[in-house]
Amino acid sequence: MPIRLAEFLSPRPEEPLWSLIRQAGVTDVVALLQGAEQEQRMFAAVGEGTRGTDGTDAAPWSEASIARDQRIFADAGFRVAAIEDTVPMDRIRLGREGRDEDIAAVIQQLEAMGNLGIGVLCFNWMAIATWSRTSIETVGRGGARVTSFRLADAGGHPDVEVAETAEDLWAALAYFLDAVIPTAERAGVRLGMHPDDPPLPRLRGVPRIMGTPDAYRRLLALNPSRANGVTFCQGNFALMPGADDVPGLIREFGERVAFSHFRNVRGTAEDFVETFHDEGVLDMAECMRALADIGFDGPLRPDHVPTMAGEPNARPGYETLGRLHALGYIRGLMDAVGA
């Protein structure tokens, strides 16, 4: 089965973006959930709950809400291949009071996804904040605007005081996996851990633990189930210390790679810029060849694309023209390596 080229969308129809993505030959979607953690952090804060199909309030991660979103995508010709959103998870990540309630919601989501035939859930262990950038106006090739990060410029947001240590986050992660992996296995859903972005050991005073290849080795050793998998975000892995051979890491993790964020960068974790897919530090053809070599047949999506001429940069990393450029480039690589 070939790799499933996908795009990252909120279930809120948007034209001409949705039609252009379909015209580019993409039928698989990696979905946000209306009002869940990542949609609130990244795109649109629309409240904790949404209206269910039966007229009652339903949580965004409930089966009623996910089924509604699935129908919205299906009406536009898309199939939901993965979900990249969850209940707010900071109490789980930090091991705080209330985490069992939130874990129960994740289990509810996994059961719903299994019932609806959605096989991959992407999650992360970044407490308090999501991915971080210090500029959305860095000038890239031909004047395109790209996102970038300089740790020296990251003082605009105050540190958050937390008592938890890195080992506390590891203990909380082991607790979480022990609680949810049995349900994921029964539901036929694979979890894919996204790296810390940027992959630094601490950001805004909060420890982070998923920022090295060894951290991923430790993650996979916590639970040997294939349901305990990796979201292989190439841009983050390229910035990690000890990750000199990114295609080699793809081959090492092998069948535990559940999901691919296919993107490119230039620099270090402390000072980097996101690039067009064809101009960063990674050999993208060799990365695609590595995915083909391990028999990867999950969803793969472009990520964090430049904003191109004439676009407003209202959604840095996710404007339309950069996505179309990336999709065409990735499709060409897939064909070239038989993926």
Results as ranks from 00 to 15, higher is better:
Phe237Tyr: 08
Gly47Val: 13
Asp90Gly: 12
Arg93Ser: 04
Trp61Phe: 08
Asp245His: 02
Asn236Asp: 03
Leu222Tyr: 06
Thr307Trp: 05
Ile294Ala: 14
Pro201Met: 00
Phe123Ser: 03
Ala67Phe: 05
Ala104Trp: 03
Phe276Met: 15
Ser260Glu: 02
Glu97Thr: 14
Pro88Phe: 06
Tyr216Lys: 06
Pro16Trp: 03
Phe237Cys: 09
Pro11Ala: 12
Ala166Arg: 10
Val273Thr: 15
Phe176Glu: 14
Met193Ile: 01
Leu9Phe: 15
Ala152Gly: 07
Arg91Glu: 08
Asp297Lys: 09
Pro199Ala: 06
Leu191Arg: 00
Met288Gly: 03
Met113Tyr: 02
Ala174Ile: 11
Glu311Asn: 11
Gly49Cys: 10
Ile103Asn: 01
Ile118Asp: 00
Val46Asp: 08
Gly77Cys: 03
Gly49Leu: 09
Asp153Asn: 09
Leu282Arg: 00
Phe123Met: 09
Ala152Ser: 10
Thr183Asp: 13
Glu270Gly: 14
Pro2Ile: 03
His157Asn: 05
Gly35Lys: 10
Ile118Gln: 02
Arg315His: 15
Gly114His: 06
Leu94Thr: 15
Arg12Tyr: 09
Gly98Met: 04
Ala105Gly: 05
Asn228Gly: 15
Gln109Gly: 07
Asp57Val: 09
Ala326Cys: 12
Arg251Pro: 05
Gly140Pro: 13
Gly205Arg: 09
Leu282Ser: 01
Gln70Phe: 00
Phe78Tyr: 09
Thr86Phe: 08
Met113Cys: 05
Glu319Arg: 02
Pro199Phe: 01
Gly188Ser: 14
Ile181Cys: 15
Arg226Lys: 07
Ala6Glu: 14
Glu63Gly: 00
Arg145Trp: 04
Ile72Asp: 01
Pro199Glu: 01
Met240Lys: 07
Leu333Cys: 10
Pro306Ile: 13
Leu177Cys: 12
Arg331Phe: 12
Ala179Trp: 11
Glu137Ile: 15
Gly52Leu: 01
Leu116Gln: 08
Ser62Gln: 05
Pro198Asp: 00
Gly156Ala: 07
Ala290Glu: 05
Arg266Pro: 07
Ala152Trp: 03
Val29Arg: 02
Asp57Pro: 05
Pro199Cys: 07
Thr50Leu: 12
Leu321Tyr: 05
Pro241Ser: 03
Tyr329Phe: 14
Leu177Arg: 11
Phe78Glu: 11
His157Glu: 05
Gly205Val: 01
Arg226Asn: 07
Ile250Met: 06
Arg68Pro: 02
Ala238Val: 00
Ala292Tyr: 00
Ala76Gly: 07
Asp197Lys: 11
Gly49Asp: 08
Ala81Lys: 09
Glu84Pro: 04
Tyr318His: 13
Tyr318Gly: 13
Gly77Glu: 02
Gly142Glu: 12
Phe78Cys: 02
Pro60Glu: 04
Gly95Ala: 13
Ala67Gln: 10
Met210Ser: 00
Thr183Tyr: 14
Ile294Tyr: 08
Gln34Arg: 08
Phe73Trp: 11
Arg145Ser: 11
Ala258Glu: 06
Ser148Thr: 08
Glu279Ala: 14
Glu274His: 14
Asp54His: 12
Val189Tyr: 02
Met42Ala: 12
Val257His: 07
Pro182Glu: 14
His277Tyr: 12
Arg208Pro: 05
Arg12Pro: 08
